[in-house]
Amino acid sequence: MPLAFLMNQTPMELFKHGGPIMWPILLVSFLLITVAVERVIFIFRENGRRDTPLVDKMLERVESGDVSGAVEMGKKSQDFVARILVYALTHKEHSLGNAFTRAANQEMQRFSQGLPTLDTCITAAPLLGLLGTVTGMMATFGALGASGDVATGASAIMGGIGEALIATAMGLAIAITGLLPFNYLNARLEEARHEVEDASNSLEIIINKSESANAR
């Protein structure tokens, strides 16, 4: 298989010439695409549910002493920060801080789902490509030692080199493609963390102010 015509081949031909290692590479790419699409849809859905003004109104209700009103407002919202506040305020008799932390951890777990899988796929894809390079070069060296006919040996050598290059290129392409959604999802996770921390700090300030006023 002359390498000069590699890009003129169909995907099926490239897959065939890539050797057996293309099967696990295909599996990794399918897993990466599936998880990335699901996670991006999740992020867009959560972004659409964000209701920052409502969270601010809930905190204002808490500051005015109307905790039950704040809880009722939050129950009507699908905003993840509002859900955290509702859970924390509902269980504040036991420990407001612990309740807030528990609810925040549950929400952050929703945001971080799939990231370890994406990370594994991004790491595994170029390694599988490297493995394809090794197996392809092994086939090349085997052809060098076993070929008696010059034409047959040259064809086998080119096939081994082609297998090595295709597997490497596919592994790198999958890893590079996966980095885009992975970095976006990580950035959105950090942004969600900051939003939760802001709500936590605001609630803590309000509670401390209320306790100080009551102490007087």
Rank of each mutant, 00 (worst) to 15 (best):
V40P: 01
V40F: 12
V40S: 05
V40A: 05
V40I: 15
I41H: 00
F42H: 13
F42G: 09
I43G: 00
I43D: 02
I43F: 12
F44Y: 08
F44I: 09
R45A: 10
R45T: 11
R45M: 09
E46Q: 15
E46G: 07
N47V: 00
N47M: 12
N47T: 01
N47G: 11
N47I: 05
N47H: 09
N47A: 08
G48Q: 10
G48T: 05
G48W: 10
G48S: 12
R49E: 10
R49P: 00
R49S: 06
R49G: 00
R49M: 06
R49Q: 09
R50T: 12
D51L: 01
D51G: 02
D51F: 00
D51M: 01
T52E: 15
T52Y: 13
T52A: 15
T52D: 13
P53Q: 04
P53M: 03
P53V: 02
L54F: 05
L54V: 10
L54H: 01
L54P: 01
V55K: 01
D56F: 14
D56S: 14
D56K: 15
D56A: 15
K57L: 11
K57D: 14
K57S: 14
K57P: 03
K57Y: 04
M58L: 11
M58A: 14
M58P: 03
M58H: 05
L59H: 06
L59R: 08
E60V: 08
E60T: 07
E60S: 13
R61G: 07
R61K: 14
R61Y: 13
R61Q: 14
V62H: 02
V62W: 05
V62P: 01
V62T: 09
V62G: 00
V62E: 02
E63N: 13
E63V: 02
E63I: 02
E63L: 09
E63F: 05
S64H: 06
S64Y: 01
S64M: 09
S64G: 09
S64L: 10
G65D: 04
G65Y: 06
G65E: 07
G65V: 04
G65F: 04
G65L: 06
G65W: 05
G65K: 08
D66F: 04
D66H: 03
D66K: 06
D66Y: 03
D66S: 07
D66W: 07
V67I: 15
V67T: 15
V67E: 12
V67Y: 05
V67R: 10
V67H: 02
V67G: 03
S68T: 12
S68M: 11
G69H: 09
G69L: 07
G69V: 08
G69Y: 04
G69R: 01
A70C: 07
A70Q: 01
A70K: 02
